[in-house]
């Protein structure tokens, strides 16, 4: 019997595709398992086709033209598509690979979480290969923030959102900066 797409387990592919398995209710972003549907959606690991003329900030304009990232607005652009976090922007620039096919054992090991292969000069963030060391470092730093958000989402999704954006949880009134609680 055929099953509809939403009833079909996609766990075999979701890690490689930053996808979500609706049968088992978890997804992956950058090789990191995300159990919160709200957080997964907030991470939104795909490019957005937007009206680019609406971005008037000079840094955003420059980012659009150079596949760059606007630190002020936390928006990155890859091939004229917008990404709303540092991690998803870096993943948008990265090369998705079939991990099992990698010829380098270090790279295969790195793809289990993250790591830099000095010999091949390639970083892995999950199944995504990043060739520039600076980009890789940015991605790993952003991945750590998402990891903290994923942990916190088990307690409060809105705190997880505040962690992603250096914001304040509207429910718990906790302010976060760089993934950590800010205490006054």
């Amino acid at each position: 019997m055929d099953v509809s797409p939403q009833d079909r387990c996609t766990c075999s592919t979701t890690r490689a595709t930053n996808g979500w398995c609706s049968v088992h209710s978890f997804g992956w972003v950058g090789g990191l398992r995300i159990d919160s549907a709200w957080l997964y959606r907030a991470l939104d690991a795909h490019g957005h086709d937007l009206d680019l003329t609406t971005f008037t900030c000079p840094q955003c304009r420059r980012a659009i033209e150079t596949d760059g990232f606007c630190e002020e607005h936390r928006i990155g652009f890859v091939r004229k598509q917008a990404y709303f976090s540092r991690l998803t922007y870096e993943l948008g620039k990265a090369e998705p690979v079939d991990v099992a096919s990698l010829g380098c054992a270090v790279c295969r090991k790195n793809a289990e979480s993250s790591g830099w292969c000095a010999r091949d000069r390639v970083g892995m963030v999950g199944p995504f290969a990043i060739k520039g060391r600076a980009d890789y470092d940015q991605a790993v730093k952003a991945l750590e923030i998402v990891r903290l958000a994923a942990v916190e989402s088990k307690r409060c999704d809105q705190c997880a959102g505040a962690i992603l954006t250096d914001g304040t949880c509207p429910f718990c009134r906790i302010k976060y900066k760089d993934g950590r609680k800010v205490t006054n």
Binding site: V97, D98, L102, C104, C117, D120, V122
Partner: peptide, 8 residues
């Protein structure tokens, strides 16, 4: 090569 050329 660090990979065998398989890209998703």
């Amino acid at each position: 090569s660090w990979r065998r050329g398989v890209v998703v």
